[in-house]
Amino acid sequence: MSGSPAGPTAPSVSRTTLVVVAVIAALVGALSGSWFMHTRNSPPSDFGADAGFSRDMQAHHAQAVEMALLVRERSDDEELRTVAYDILTSQQQQAGQMYGWLVQWGLPQTGSGEPMAWVGEDHAKAHTRPDGTMPGMASRALLDELRAADGLAAERLFLTLMIAHHEGGVAMADAALAQARTTEVRTLAAAISSAQASEITLLQRMLDERG
């Protein structure tokens, strides 16, 4: 008696449940699957490391180009003028690559957050200075000092500023290497990191030679 009514009906309830659960599971699976494929194939996010690095490193490079141009107008030293020429042409070209990526990704050149926000809150403090600028960036006042300097004084100041600038650049590139998703950003970040690290050695030698 107790078994006979429950017997044929109990499985049909659990069948309904099973069907509903299966449909929900299939929906969730399909949604997360397509979301995964979408994020894999879609362009980088406006807030991620790829876009953040491409914007911030453009501004960082622009200042290196500006300083290199300034010192070329203020120094007769052939070696230093060649190093400056190397820095300004390569970094200007790299800035153009990053500009082009943002255009291709359909993202604006201007980000929504503060500079270096893309490294994440944990790292942001380590990567920005108290005034919120990027690591290694020279202040307006120091650039004015370089503009006013000439000859040996300009060379010394340029080398000092560019060593700090490169150290900041290496830190930024390493952060991008750790966080960026796209191959193009990771490849350029690796190239910047190694090129600027080795250039620091050269700049330091040149600074030491100038007392």
């Binding site: 622009a62 200042q63 180009v65 500006e66 141009l69 800035a95 153009g96 500009y99 255009v103 604006p108 050149q109 201007t110 980000g111 929504s112």
Partner: peptide, 20 residues
């Protein structure tokens, strides 16, 4: 406005300097 138009698609000479 800044996000939309600073170095935006309306820029006739993208990449040209704003220093020097």
């Amino acid at each position: 406005f800044i996000k939309e138009f600073r170095q935006g698609p309306n820029t006739p000479e993208p990449g040209a300097a704003c220093t020097g």
